[in-house]
C-alpha cells in the first residue's frame, strides 16, 4: 500500500514539476506570474488528443503538440507580454491580469471549439500493469517518469551546455547587463516561452493519459497550484521547482491517504505555501538578496 502511494505521489509530483517548470522559466526571464501557462497545458492536452486520435501515434502527439503550443507561447510573448512590460510605470499586477484573461480565454475557446464534455485518451499499451516485487506499476506512470526525466535532461543540457542557455542564464541574472554585453535578450524570452509552453503541453497530455479524461476545465486546478509550486521553489529557480513539485505531490497524496484533514486536497499546496512563507519568506530555495 505504502509503495503504491509512493509511486502515485511520484507520478503526480512529476506532472506538477513539469507544469510548473514552464511558469518558472517564464518568471526567471520576464518576471511575470504567467497563469496562462495552465492554458498551454489545456490546449496542449486537446491538441495532443486530436493528433493521437488522427494518427494513433502518441510520440507524434507529444512532439507535435509541444511544438505548436511552444510557438503559440512565443506569439503571445511577442504580441502581449513584451509590449506590456515595455510600458513604464505599470503595476506589477497588470501582467498577471493579462495572464488571467488569456487563461480564461483559452478555456472558453476550447469549450466552444471542442465541446464542453470530457474526452478520453484511451491510450493502449500491451500490458495493463507490471508487477515488480510489491509494487504494481501502471504503464502510464513509467511513461510519465521517463518523459519528465527526459524533459528535465533536455532543459539541463540547454541551459548549461549551450550558448543559448548561457544567454538565458545571464538574462535571468540581470537582463540590463546582459543586454549591454550583447546578449540578445529577446531570444532568451522566446526560449522561455517555447520551453515553458512546450513543457506545459507535454504535462497536459500526460495528465490526459493518467486520468484518461480531458475537459475544458482541465487547467483550472494547475493554474493556481502551479503558482504555489513556483513560489515554494523560490521563484525562477528550476531545481527548486522540481523539488517543490515533488514535495506537493507527496504531501497531497500522503495527507489525503493517511489523515483526515477537513480541507480539500487541492488547497493543501497553498496551506504548505503559506506556512512556508511565514517561516522563510524568500521561498524554499530562494536567495535572500537576489530579488
Amino acid at each position: 500500500m505504502f509503495e503504491q502511494q509512493f509511486m502515485n505521489a511520484l507520478a503526480i509530483g512529476s506532472v506538477y514539476a513539469l507544469t510548473a517548470m514552464g511558469a518558472t522559466l517564464i518568471y526567471g526571464i520576464m518576471g511575470i506570474l504567467d497563469i496562462a501557462n495552465a492554458g498551454a497545458y489545456l490546449v496542449g492536452a486537446y491538441l495532443g488528443w486530436y493528433i493521437y486520435h488522427a494518427t494513433g501515434n502518441i510520440a507524434l502527439a507529444f512532439i507535435g503538440s509541444a511544438i505548436a503550443v511552444g510557438a503559440l507561447g512565443v506569439l503571445l510573448q511577442k504580441t502581449i507580454y513584451s509590449p506590456i512590460l515595455a510600458k513604464q510605470n505599470t503595476l506589477s499586477i497588470i501582467p498577471l491580469v493579462a495572464a488571467v484573461g488569456l487563461f480564461t480565454m483559452s478555456s472558453d475557446v476550447i469549450r466552444l471549439i471542442c465541446g464542453p464534455y470530457s474526452k478520453s485518451y484511451n491510450f493502449k499499451t500491451s500490458a495493463d500493469s507490471i508487477q515488480i516485487g510489491p509494487i504494481v506499476l501502471i504503464p502510464a506512470w513509467i511513461l510519465i517518469f521517463a518523459l519528465t526525466a527526459l524533459c528535465l535532461l533536455v532543459l539541463w543540457f540547454l541551459l548549461n551546455r549551450t550558448k543559448l542557455g548561457l544567454a538565458w542564464r545571464s538574462t535571468a541574472n540581470d537582463s540590463e547587463i546582459a543586454k549591454v554585453c550583447g546578449v540578445d535578450t529577446n531570444k532568451s524570452m522566446a526560449l522561455s516561452y517555447i520551453l515553458g509552453y512546450g513543457f506545459a503541453a507535454i504535462a497536459g497530455i500526460m495528465v490526459g493519459i493518467l486520468y484518461n479524461s480531458i475537459t475544458p476545465a482541465l487547467g483550472e486546478v494547475p493554474s493556481y497550484k502551479m503558482l504555489a509550486i513556483i513560489v515554494l521553489g523560490g521563484l525562477g529557480n528550476p531545481v527548486g521547482t522540481v523539488i517543490a513539485g515533488l514535495l506537493i505531490g507527496f504531501v497531497e497524496v500522503f495527507v489525503s491517504a493517511y489523515t483526515n484533514l477537513p480541507i480539500p486536497k487541492d488547497a493543501i499546496a497553498f496551506v504548505v505555501l503559506i506556512i512556508m512563507l511565514l517561516i522563510k519568506p524568500e521561498g524554499l530555495m530562494g536567495q535572500k538578496n537576489k530579488m
Partner: peptide, 28 residues
C-alpha cells in the same frame, strides 16, 4: 504578513488565502 513578503509573493499568497478561505467556508 505582507510586510514580510515581496510584491509577487504577496500576489500569490493572497491568491492562496482566497483558495484556502473558500475551502474553509465549504467545510466549517
Amino acid at each position: 504578513i505582507s510586510l514580510r513578503l515581496q510584491e509577487d509573493f504577496l500576489a500569490i499568497t493572497t491568491i492562496g488565502i482566497n483558495f484556502v478561505m473558500a475551502a474553509v467556508f465549504n467545510t466549517l
